[in-house]
Nucleic acid binder design. Sequence first.
DNA 1: ATATTTGTTATACAAAAATTATAACAAAAT
DNA 2: ATTTTGTTATAATTTTTGTATAACAAATAT
Lengths: 123, 123
Amino acid sequence: MIVTIDFNSNEAIYIQLRNQIIMGIANSQIHDGDNLPSVRELADNIGINMHTVNKAYTILKQEGYIKLDRRKGAVIALDYDKFRAIEEMKNDLRTILARAICKNISEEEIHEILTDVINEFEG
Amino acid sequence: MIVTIDFNSNEAIYIQLRNQIIMGIANSQIHDGDNLPSVRELADNIGINMHTVNKAYTILKQEGYIKLDRRKGAVIALDYDKFRAIEEMKNDLRTILARAICKNISEEEIHEILTDVINEFEG
DNA sequence: ATATTTGTTATACAAAAATTATAACAAAAT
DNA sequence: ATTTTGTTATAATTTTTGTATAACAAATAT
């Protein structure tokens, strides 16, 4: 799995990293049980500091995407707290949908766009 | 329209402000042509600095939600650049949907959740 | 005409967040 | 015994965010 960081983005590096790993899982590029590179290896690879990677991993752990094991390193381990996930999703959707409504995008169109984006995912 | 700022949020004040104004438009609490309070008035009202409000207004202008006029102040003025809006929406949706897929939320469920959130909006 | 209100711009500072730099530790693997 | 793992600690730097004043030009109101 390839990780690309945009150093000119307004998004913090550790957030970009978190999002890309989540995208990697959603795209079946990495699977439950796979282990991620060590914090030091990934940091060296990208050219950033160890602690920035560690921050991303710590968040991914809190959010239920990976487990951190001193022997195995970071391992993909999805926990399915659907209720929590749905509540968080609703929160995130509110702002996006408010923007869509302001821009005169209809409910039908929104559903179509949603379908399009879902179909981008592989696996 | 009531604006509430969470000073303990990890979201910057000017971002919260921008989002709440967009929500206000989407909820028909404020309409095209209405004018927002002046930067100084709103800043005083909330208890924050003028420049923080100005930052939010400047972003809202760039994103096509308001126009800034030296005589009238800030006025809601929606520009409907649908193509741009859709592209931005797709980008925002990607991360959210990646999370949903990782959490085993089905496409049907996602559409249902979307419908629920859209129905929260009034007008 | 004068005073006030508007967004705008400039400068400086303070506080918080993000990132880097080293270093050390304990547990596990080799 | 050495290396590699996440973990923790401490410090410094950089960037972002927010505040504090101040001034300007255009427009409004008095």
